[in-house]
Design a protein around this nucleic acid. Structure first.
Ligand SMILES: [Zn+2]
Ligand SMILES: [Zn+2]
Ligand SMILES: [Zn+2]
Ligand SMILES: [Zn+2]
Lengths: 135, 135
DNA sequence: CTTGACCCTCTAGTGACTACAGGGTGCATA
DNA sequence: TATGCACCCTGTAGTCACTAGAGGGTCAAG
């Protein structure tokens, strides 16, 4: 069972060293052992846990959600209902964001479309932002 | 020309009082005059400027972009090229975000789909997060 | 024996607010 | 006149998920 430095762990998971220390500080990762010179010393289990965190983060889960998911993942013989619930809730949030951003994109595109590249005074983009344009 | 309190301005623009003070603090809004009892006192021009800021924020522009847009909006006889550039760049960012979120949504939906509601040990959602699931 | 890459802790910065704490002001009402 | 309440003030600290830096210690190679 090979021991890993924080740098090894960072490389293996595509995480910055500072981020790993941050995860430890907020209690998302367990405190690892230390070498004689006070270096953090990790094993395969730490690697697995950090990979889990990173994968969940890549899927857009918040750190609080990740924390819950980690806790649930350890209780292997319970029903996965709670896991489902977290994932579905997150999916709903993502879908809502897409709807919002799409509406935003359409509005932005429309505003930009109307610009006829004259002076700022005539600019429809500025007009779209200014309330009750003088006149 | 009626004078407005910060609360009036907040109500008129749908902004929180604290946010207006924050905008003033970071130099996005000019410091207004004060009454004898040191209350901020605004006029129609302040109202217009804050409305501009809020509208631009609603369209997703960053405060730095809003600052630039405000600066440009005052130079009425210049070409609106720079305004266009900011708006188009923002549109591009929004479009990229939509693409990213859509990919994320698909991946999430796929992961959730595969769950067959058993124990955590069997859960495909957890499996999708865990690296090299034991076995 | 020095260079450079790594490691350590602690603090502060990011964006765009938001939420107090601890006070002052202005107006209506009992 | 007192008192309550809504509003205003300043200043600081918290949010989220990191990221960057200061100021130092450790280790292997040349
Ligand atoms: Zn144009
Ligand atoms: Zn234009
Ligand atoms: Zn399920
Ligand atoms: Zn499941």
């Amino acid at each position: 069972m090979p021991r890993l430095t924080i740098g090894d762990l960072a490389k293996a998971t595509g995480t910055k060293v500072e981020t790993i220390r941050y995860y430890e500080r907020i209690g998302l990762l367990p405190e690892p052992g230390r070498t004689g010179s006070n270096y953090r010393s990790y094993d395969e289990e730490h690697l697995g846990r950090l990979s889990f965190v990173r994968r969940a983060r890549d899927l857009g889960f918040s750190l609080d959600q990740v924390r819950e998911l980690l806790g649930l993942a350890d209780q292997t013989d319970r029903s996965c209902e709670a896991v489902d619930a977290i994932a579905r809730q997150h999916l709903t949030e993502v879908e809502r964001k897409i709807v919002d951003l799409t509406a935003l994109r359409d509005e932005l595109a429309e505003v930009i479309e109307r610009c006829n590249h004259g002076t700022v005074a005539e600019c429809r983009i500025i007009a779209a932002l200014a309330p009750v344009p003088a006149g």
